[in-house]
């Protein structure tokens, strides 16, 4: 059982930004960049994060930002860090904030290469489960049967498990987080910040427009994603030591789907199928923790 983490609001993220009203991702950006602190250089590829960061000559973040290309964020961060080290500047953190398209799909080669080389960076994937900045098309992160602009009848295949893929690279730190659990998110960012080597955090960031949510729904939906077992909050150290921080509380997946237009087309059979998939995933995850003698197989049932 962990004590609640005190969020240190360093004031790096400024009050004026370009996100939609109620945006889950803007919350995540706030906790991530403020926790990373002012001694940070960030890489932001094309994504909603770039919109949140703002147009020249303005910026919503009080640290240097490089707006790179969609597929190259991890390589861009590696170049910055290596240049800093060559100048003897060892106290500057290099951070990536990329979307799921820029991470699961087009950016994956650069990410995997950086992980293999154990480049020294914190890579945060802001996962809103689709290409939301271009009008909500499906990505490799879009869940099974979710409707998007490019899969209007529902996506026929499942969501990649990016946390396990990154853990399989045996990097020092992998974590999942979401904006409904801000203390957990900030604690993980701080932990990653204070480590060395490749650290990867995927943050589920509900999208008002792309998911079809009401403007006040992002945080509640984020919590339901965890409580249903759809998006458990975990940490994986060195690729093998799994910890479940917050997981399924037995809430039926139907309650998560109910507030989201992207799942409105689902019938009872499809919902039952998705419930079975989530149950299987949750069992598999618990078995990974049970394989680790230091792990906590029960998670934190109190949330």
């Amino acid at each position: 059982m962990r004590a609640n983490y005190e969020i240190d609001e360093a004031g790096v993220f400024l009050s004026g930004h370009h996100a939609c009203a109620g945006c889950g991702e803007a919350l995540a950006v706030r906790y991530v960049i403020n926790t990373m602190g002012p001694r940070t250089i960030a890489v932001v590829p094309p994504s909603c994060i770039a919109i949140i960061a703002g147009l020249q000559p303005n910026s919503s973040m009080h640290v240097p930002i490089v707006h790179g290309t969609l597929e190259s964020s991890a390589a861009a961060a590696a170049g910055i860090k290596r240049a800093l080290v060559s100048q003897g500047k060892d106290d500057v953190n290099v951070l990536v904030m990329a979307g799921d398209g820029g991470t699961y799909d087009i950016g994956f080669q650069a990410l995997s290469g950086a992980a293999e080389r154990n480049e020294d960076m914190v890579y945060v994937c802001m996962d809103n489960e689709g290409y939301m900045n271009t009008g909500a098309q499906k990505s490799g992160s879009t869940p099974h049967l979710a409707s998007t602009a490019s899969t209007p009848g529902g996506k026929l295949t499942g969501k990649k498990n990016i946390a396990e893929i990154m853990a399989a690279h045996r990097i020092p730190y992998v974590a999942t987080a979401t904006v409904g659990y801000p203390d957990d998110l900030a604690r993980k960012v701080a932990k990653a910040r204070d480590m060395k080597g490749m650290r990867f955090i995927v943050v589920l960031t509900p999208c008002i427009d792309g998911w079809g949510l009401s403007e006040n729904a992002a945080v509640g939906v984020s919590r339901l994603a965890v409580e249903t077992g759809i998006f458990p909050l975990i940490e994986v150290e060195d690729g093998v030591r799994y910890t479940i921080n917050h997981g399924s509380r037995g809430v039926p997946v139907e309650r998560y789907f109910a507030g989201q237009k992207r799942f409105r087309h689902l019938g009872p059979e499809q919902i039952a199928q998705l419930q079975a998939e989530v149950d299987e995933g949750w069992s598999l995850l618990k078995s990974r923790v049970e394989c680790d003698p230091t792990g906590d197989p029960t998670g934190d049932p109190t949330g």
Partner: peptide
């Protein structure tokens, strides 16, 4: 690097730094 694309990307950001 794992590709020429990433090699050039790292050149750019290291140079910007």
């Amino acid at each position: 690097a794992e590709s020429e694309h990433s090699a050039m990307t790292a050149c750019i950001t290291a140079s910007l730094t």
